[in-house]
Design a protein around this nucleic acid. Structure first.
Length: 523
DNA sequence: GTTTGTTTATGAGCTA
DNA sequence: TAGCTCATAAACAAAC
């Protein structure tokens, strides 16, 4: 009944483990009594001393109390890397974002605290500068699509399935673990902690996770030492495949955007359109549907097209942004093409070879995040997950041979000065907004990225790219300010109330001359 | 009994 | 349309 969590991926919300040890039924009640305080900037600034203990090197496993305060107040903090969710109110998100990732944030509460499943009808807390909103849809939210399915807070929205493949989710968890290897239970926990959908979804998704781990060559099983307690082994990413991604050995597949959690929806008897409405700017703010965010952004249709082009160039996901598709995608039963991502249990896609007497007969309750069955080690491991993606650890792994990185080069979609110094000590991982992977780069300096943005990647590449894209913005989501060459400060155009011409040029330059020239021609 | 891991099978979407 | 990937479902075994 009670589940102990060693992970509180949303500690900044100040509601910590306590919420995770109560039942879902009690959560709503508790929320009523102890509503998650909506914090702004200071929430970020009060946590540095708290995050250390639950991060690798911090030494101690997080306590149930300290974990809720496990934050990092420095601008270098990657704590907000955990912000995978996609906001439901794009204009608010942008506004918040405008305040910078560490300032003016409506701090998300713990996953469960922000779990609408426990507070049905409660609108999602707006203004979360959640990662995915930066990762996938910073621009689409600004452009012409009338519907932006990415405006979904996956962290707290249990109705919409995250648009990530299971492999990506696993990879995310592995990266978040800051360790080279991770247990299955920690993968579960990370996913459930970071994606509300899976907390309420039929637990068969865990089967899919296991299936993915076993089948996907990207993942290597690391047997547990005989003297190591606990069940099962560890899993890690196969560096060979990280390398292969660079050679473009795999094709990039489309990752359709969203999918409503059918199980939860059935339980809650929520109309499918409710979720759509939640994430539908046209309903939440009709003026945004035509592109542009009144009072927030004013972008001409031409610029919107350019922005869209930028988005497509940087994410390769533009094809999925068909407004018709995305509109349909939020409705259950539209098929994989538009529902995609990790499939929802009980969805129309699946076929049952054997009917188990109607509804799934398993009496097993869905594993809650942070299972009490986790071993101490696993809880420690999850303690690492509690923190943000530790690129140092990741890079350390790379430098230790498990993963390798390219040497030098302007390998970042983010200006180097955006990065924490410790990141500057390492090589960047992407070129012009295109992730080039975590694995060894091609010999001779001929990185995949050096040949230009990856137009086609796939397999592991997809996985890595998707994972990276999901984390890149978490790491440095269009910082509030950045210095340009002359030291002048410009504000991220995504966060600006208007689009700065110079920003567009900078943007275009970062993408190459083509788009830049288009922008210039428009201006 | 539960969890973990493997394997098989099938449907569906996407791309060449 | 074939081949691929991904998701789902299920059976089974081993480990805890």
């Amino acid at each position: 009944m009670l589940s102990m969590s060693c992970v509180d991926p949303w500690p900044e919300g100040s509601i910590g483990l306590e919420e995770e040890v109560v039942t879902a039924a009690a959560q709503a009640e508790e929320l009523d009594q102890n509503p998650s305080p909506t914090q702004s900037g200071p929430a970020w600034s009060s946590s540095a001393q708290d995050i250390a203990p639950c991060c690798p090197g911090g030494g101690t496993a997080p306590s149930s109390i300290s974990s809720s305060l496990c934050l990092d107040d420095s601008l270098t903090s990657l704590q907000w890397l955990q912000e995978f969710s996609i906001v439901s109110a794009p204009h608010v998100a942008l506004s918040s974002h405008h305040q910078g990732p560490l300032v003016g944030i409506d701090a998300p509460s713990s996953p469960l605290a922000g779990d609408p499943a426990t507070t049905i009808g409660t609108p999602l807390t707006p203004g979360k500068p959640t990662a995915a909103s930066f990762y996938r849809a910073p621009l689409p939210c600004l452009v012409t699509h009338g519907h932006c399915p990415d405006e979904v807070d996956y962290k707290s929205n249990p109705h919409v399935k995250p648009p990530y493949s299971y492999a990506t989710l696993i990879c995310m968890a592995m990266q978040a673990s800051q360790k080279a290897k991770i247990t299955l239970s920690c993968i579960y926990s990370w996913i459930t902690d970071n994606f509300c959908y899976f907390r309420h979804a039929d637990p068969t998704w865990q089967n899919s996770i296991r299936h993915n781990l076993s089948l996907n060559k990207c993942f290597i099983k690391v047997p547990r030492q005989k003297d190591e307690p606990g069940k099962g082994g560890f899993w890690k990413i196969d560096p060979q495949y990280a390398e292969r991604l660079l050679s473009g050995a795999y094709k990039k597949r489309r990752m359709p955007p969203v999918r409503i959690n059918p199980a939860l929806q059935a339980r809650l008897r929520l109309p499918a359109t409710s979720t759509a409405a939640t994430s539908d700017p046209a309903t939440s703010d009709p003026t945004t549907s035509g592109g542009g965010l009144p009072g927030v952004l004013s972008v001409s249709p031409e610029s919107q097209l350019l922005l869209q082009e930028f988005e497509e160039a940087t994410t390769g996901l533009g094809r999925t942004r068909d407004p018709h598709l995305t509109e349909a995608a939020v409705l259950w039963g539209t098929g994989r093409g538009v529902s995609g991502g990790v499939g929802g249990a009980g969805g129309p896609r699946g076929r049952k070879r054997k009917q188990l007497g109607g509804a799934r007969t398993s009496s097993k309750a869905p594993r809650r995040s942070s299972s009490p069955l986790l071993s101490t080690e696993e809880q420690r491991e999850l303690g690492a997950l509690k923190g943000s993606f530790d690129w140092d650890a990741l890079l350390d792994s790379a430098l230790n041979g498990e993963l390798s990185l390219d040497e030098g080069g302007p390998l970042s979609p983010i200006p180097p000065h955006h990065h924490d110094q410790r990141h500057d000590d390492h090589q960047e991982l992407a070129v012009h907004g295109t992730h080039i992977g975590l694995g060894p780069l091609q010999a001779g300096g001929g990185t995949a990225a050096s040949d230009g943005p990856r137009g086609v990647v796939g397999g592991v590449g997809d996985l890595e790219e998707e994972t990276y894209l999901a984390t890149a913005f978490l790491q440095d989501p269009w910082p509030e300010e950045e210095e340009v060459d002359g030291g002048a400060t410009r504000v991220d155009f995504l966060c600006s109330s208007t689009v700065n011409i110079e920003q567009l040029f900078d943007l275009g330059d970062s993408l190459g001359g083509d788009i830049s020239s288009k922008i210039e021609s428009l201006l």
